[in-house]
């Protein structure tokens, strides 16, 4: 349960699951039907990625571990997702920006991960990369559209940057388990920054120069939001223990 590879796979899985959960909250509530369907597609892709990672982690753990025991029966401080993905939807601007920041990161990450020594991780990353490439395109276009749209959309994008920028630094600081397995995330930071700068410039949104970067999620120390997410996510499993669904 505590070896670095296991922790690393769970970290990848948790990121995907928590963002899938957040995006899924839009289903039925999107700004227009077409985009409701689009964000749900992204949620489904991320959920699929999470399942692949959890299933792999479960197979390594053996015993009675399953994708569901890993997703539904771990508590807050056992979750290793970054703080960014657990931030609330708030509005379309924050949802879009969260997706864009994360998809840019995930794209660079999976690009390297598909060459990993671990064949299973490499295979999951290679498959997911195609999905992420679409998420990136979709969210990038929306970032520009909102940044360069109306005065209100521009203002909301600025608010979104203010809310989310502080959670981006953590993505590139290797956690203890990342020092031993997987991709060295410190190496993708420059590429991420460069791409984000280009897109934000096109959107007409300036990024803060000095922001204190919040950390902790990857080590299990989260914002208060995660507790509520897990309360919902895990409620049925915990209310009816030892049942099949």
């Amino acid at each position: 349960m505590n070896d670095p590879l296991n922790k690393y796979i769970l970290h990848l899985a948790d990121n995907a699951l928590i963002l899938a959960q957040r995006n899924g909250e839009w289903c039925g509530h999107g700004p227009i039907l077409e985009q409701d369907i689009a964000i749900t597609n992204i949620s489904l892709d991320l959920l699929g990625q999470a399942r692949n990672f959890y299933q792999y982690a479960a197979s390594l753990q053996g015993n009675d571990a399953t994708e569901d025991s890993l997703a539904y029966l771990r508590i807050e401080n056992e979750y290793r997702n970054g703080l960014l993905v657990e931030q609330p939807n708030i509005d379309w601007a924050q949802t879009i920006l969260r997706q864009y920041f994360f998809s840019t990161y995930q794209y660079l990450l999976y690009e390297k991960l598909q060459a990993a020594d671990d064949a299973q991780l490499a295979a999951i990353a290679a498959k997911a990369l195609k999905e992420v490439s679409y998420h990136l395109r979709w969210s990038r276009e929306w970032v520009i559209r909102l940044g360069d749209g109306t005065a209100e959309s521009h203002r909301r994008m600025i608010q979104a940057v203010d809310a989310l920028w502080r959670y981006t630094g953590e993505l590139f600081i290797p956690a203890d388990y990342e020092n031993q397995v997987g991709v060295d995330v410190s190496l993708i930071k420059d590429a991420w920054t460069e791409q984000v700068n280009v897109v934000m410039a096109e959107a007409g949104i300036s990024l803060p120069e000095k922001t204190y970067m919040q950390t902790g999620g990857k080590q299990g120390i989260h914002t208060e939001h995660l507790g509520y997410i897990l309360a919902e996510l895990q409620y049925v499993q915990r209310a009816y223990p030892n049942s099949s669904w």
Binding site: L33, E34, I37, A38, N41, Y134, R137, W138, E141, R145
Partner: peptide, 20 residues
């Protein structure tokens, strides 16, 4: 058919709506 603000979005919406 579907609604979209521009051509790029129309193609993406079509991908999401009609090729699931």
């Amino acid at each position: 058919s579907l609604h979209a603000a521009d051509a790029a979005m129309a193609i993406e919406n079509a991908r999401d709506v009609y090729t699931r």
